[in-house]
Amino acid sequence: MNTITKSKFTETKFYQTLTSLMAKNETMLVISIVVMSIVIGTINNKFFAVETIYETLLATVIWGIVGMGVALVMINGGVDLSCMPIAMFSAYSATKIMLWIAPNAPIIVLFLIGMVIGAGLGLVNALFISIFKIPIFIATLALGVIYKAVMLEFIGNIYITPAEMPQSALDFSRTYVFGGLHVSVLIMLGVILLTFFILRFTVIGRGVYALGGAPESAERIGYNMNRLKFSIYIYAGIMYAIGGVVYVSNSRLADPYDMIGTELTVIAAVVLGGVSLMGGKGSVWGVLLGALLSVIIKNNLILIGVTSDWANFVFGLIFVLAVALQAYNTARSKKQSA
């Protein structure tokens, strides 16, 4: 009867807030990031320089933006493997279209064209997932391959060199604010804030969680399932497209073979960020922190003596540990409440 005679300490408010804070995935991530930073910082004292921090943030941008879409799909209860194909498809096609119709248009046009294409591809995803009830994983895996093939066959398979890139994209890649912070970091923050707002303060955003937690109940209290699912996948498609356009602009190169194949990095960051493997739970800040942590680890592996041959292994190990840790935590909290 240990459960009845609890010690006094466990009943104090301090202990309770402490445990609830510790149970929060975000707290663990912040601690991990701080610890990692201290370790790396002691080896390389440049790590804490403003430039390095800005650089780290810039490297996080793609994973943060695309991660918003992936997180949304995962809260809905599935893994989206079509994220990077959609990102590349949208960015590459948008660049081609813009070069074709208005090569001198401002960067916003490039973004808008990309977003429209991304939304369209998200719509295709939703069509097969929502109407034909194909399991999310199989649908996105297969559609990802199809998007890539369609792009390479019908849109183009030759990369657009920096010399050919739209001027506005080149300008964008050189736009800095606050003494060296790249503007795309602001875009990432904007996208995260927007997603946060939608998830927290809109009825459709709560529907994403409701759908992930109990799909049947969500329908029964009056959510239109098709509308909800289409919204999720179209929004995710737009996120991927933004990520793709930012990537293409920043690298001043639109290579249709690029990006595709890095889906797992995003998924790992999202899982690391604490989005539930079973759907229904997860926060945008967790995803940001997860992306940040994986970038810090990836970018500094060589610094702490890991050769590039080991990079894949370390990434794989982190991925395994992230899923295992989350599953372990879920099991433990379930046991406690039972």
Partner: peptide, 27 residues
């Protein structure tokens, strides 16, 4: 019961109201 295990008691009771009133924002 058709409840949402991953949402709070308040959200479970209040979410339906938001849908009924066709609200866009969630309070």
């Amino acid at each position: 019961f058709s409840l949402f295990p991953n949402l709070t008691v308040a959200d479970n009771i209040g979410l339906g109201y938001h849908l009924l009133e066709d609200k866009k924002l969630f309070s």
